[in-house]
Design a protein around this nucleic acid. Structure first.
Lengths: 362, 362
DNA sequence: CATTATGCTGAAAGCGTTTACAATCCGCAA
DNA sequence: TTGCGGATTGTAAACGCTTTCAGCATAATG
């Protein structure tokens, strides 16, 4: 039989730390042992006070709490992680996306993570050229799960993430059929709304989609939704009504310079792949003396701050960027805390915001 | 004398892991023990292959490397952190700053951290209202150091960070006198440049500074540099030449609406606290029929993307946001890797970018 | 040949937690 | 008295790594 009183204490050993005077400087961290001895309990009890208070008598708990407060003790996350295999840190990997989108998304994700008691480790995907080989950009092993944003098929973030065997969610691509929780924005719905809005004052044959990079999933979705919506009105879209480029105002400008010539006197409409393209179009138009919204009706995409700063104010399809971040974190945490949860694809709605750039003046 | 051969091996114990067949599913992580036994060496040797390859014979190292490659072994960062007391994770705490600034800064910081072999844990400062009490927003204990951005005196991020005893750098405030590595942007120099540029075509008495929030350090610095630069030209600035508001276009608009009335027919100049304010001013001006740059010469601050998207294009003082992020990480890593390094304040230059909004047409 | 240096390797001691298990103390029923 | 169960606490075993120390060849030196 085991009897603690018989066995000689195995010598005070180590942890000569702060407990005895030791006033001499330099002690930096206080460990659970320090708290335990100061409170005259075992380290197990201290741990319980923190993690399972109901297992400890009120008197003891109070004493321990007091010591914790006084010493400023905080558990060492490495030791905790080693044993619990979790760190309450979430990874989020983003491609090199456009400015405002990036920060809004991150803001949403960070706020949500914080409110769920997690921290956020970010990692922008390095540009293609400077990708080291087995760079191991993500801190697998340290994080409890990871949210990756996949904007085009060339990204290998997803492979990396899945290889890590960590709970994973993908943003901007529906992979729930492949067993990955996903979060997508309703690009199709927003596009349809935008098209229908334009169709109210512009003939389908004079409607154009000026998109982002062709390899980009968003751009693809918006383009085919555009074709579908135009077709739904009874007009089979010509090939020249849809173009791809990139997400810059320069591309919008370039497109407009070419097409403004070709276009006759009639009214026509443009749905841009994002707000910046729209602004490029707007500028080329004003350069060419084409009035907005009189001759050209324009709708952007994303509803960035730009849209309200420009004149005429830009009608645009609002994408809830912060909500994308927040929802992806929620989805990820759900998966972490219940590995058996059903694989889900969350759809986030978009909505048309009508401003001056697209409605004929009264 | 110690002789390993005399002591009986203390029983194979634990780590029944992957080594023996065990084909049955479920093994997730491979530990250093697995690698060691597969390579028929001790765990110490495996560790050395990874951390001090020169201590291991080439033959052994090759064998171990091969096993590592095959098994995909990666050291457990918790165990490493527990013993080395470092995680190669850096914290960066940002207030709720404006969109584009935020993302550029983070992008710079992330790229630099990655290239130095660190990861980045972000944390936006929660808005004032929802600050829990001992929230402990930052993952102290997990990170090796922290960069905090302090935009006004009310922030308590710094106190928290210093209380953590972690290596710390502050952005946007010079605290090197208080023993904290700092990183500041040359607001004064940029402001001076902007003022002098305007002074070339506008009398000092007709120059205005439309600043951000009065409690904001940047805004303060820019305002007093404005006063100083104007004074240096020989004109003592009137009180109404400097105003504070916030960093929005609405404030710029409001300011302009009031002041455009008061101003007579003469030419006047505005240096805005940031680009967005400048755009507000620009819009109010165009509303009021005041032509830019003919009657109003305008210079912004920050050189965000906005500045080139608006017409006329906005002259502005460029602040190297990405470089601020990168430099702060460099400074932080230097401190982490050499705690004795001299306390430093890094100054980042600003530079005036002249576009159409501020130069009289030929 | 005896000694010493050198290169390589292994054993074991932690690092600071959590948690299974054992032990004690107590009240209460048998 | 005895035994049982619940409440509370303590002991010790992990968790996976780094690093000191010691052991042992083998090479270099006297």
């Amino acid at each position: 039989m085991y009897d603690a009183r018989i066995m000689p204490k195995p010598a005070p050993k180590k942890h000569l730390s702060a407990k005895e005077g030791e006033s001499a400087g330099g002690r930096v961290t206080v460990s659970i042992h320090d708290v335990a001895s100061a409170a005259r309990v075992s380290i197990a009890t201290v741990s319980r006070v923190i993690n399972n208070p109901h297992l400890v008598s009120a008197r003891t708990a109070a004493r321990v709490q007091e010591v914790i407060r006084k010493t400023g003790y905080a558990p060492n996350p490495f030791a905790q992680g080693l044993i619990t295999r979790s760190s309450r840190v979430l990874g989020i990997a983003l491609p090199d996306i456009h400015g405002e989108f990036y920060s809004e998304l991150l803001r949403g994700a960070d706020a949500e993570a914080r409110s769920l008691g997690y921290h956020l480790l970010v990692s922008s995907e390095p540009r293609r050229e400077d990708r080291g080989p087995a760079n191991g950009s993500l801190a697998f092993g340290l994080i409890d799960g990871i949210a990756v944003m996949i904007t085009d098929a060339a990204s290998n973030l997803l492979k990396e993430a899945k290889g890590s065997l960590l709970p994973t969610v993908v943003l901007d691509t529906d992979l729930h059929a492949k067993g990955v929780d996903s979060l997508v924005v309703d690009n199709a719905g927003g596009t349809r709304e935008g098209v229908n809005h334009l169709l109210a004052s512009v003939p389908a044959s004079s409607l154009y989609f000026v998109g982002g990079p062709e390899e980009n999933f968003d751009a693809q979705q918006r383009a085919s939704a555009f074709r579908a919506a135009v077709a739904a009105s009874g007009w089979k879209p010509r090939a020249d009504q849809v173009s791809f480029g990139d997400y810059t105002s320069e591309w919008g400008e370039r497109w407009a310079e070419e097409h403004l010539k070709a276009t006759g006197k009639g009214v026509f409409g443009v749905l841009a792949g994002n707000d910046e393209i729209a602004i490029g179009v707007m500028q080329a138009a004003s350069q060419a003396g084409v009035r907005i919204p009189d001759q050209l009706r324009l709708v952007g995409f994303d509803d960035t701050r730009l849209a309200t700063l420009i004149r005429p104010r830009l009608s645009t399809v609002r994408v809830p960027m912060a909500e994308v971040g927040a929802a992806s974190i929620r989805l990820l945490v759900r998966r972490i805390e219940d590995r058996e949860a059903e694989i889900t694809c969350v759809h986030l709605p978009t909505s048309l915001v009508v401003r001056e750039s697209s409605v004929p003046r009264a």
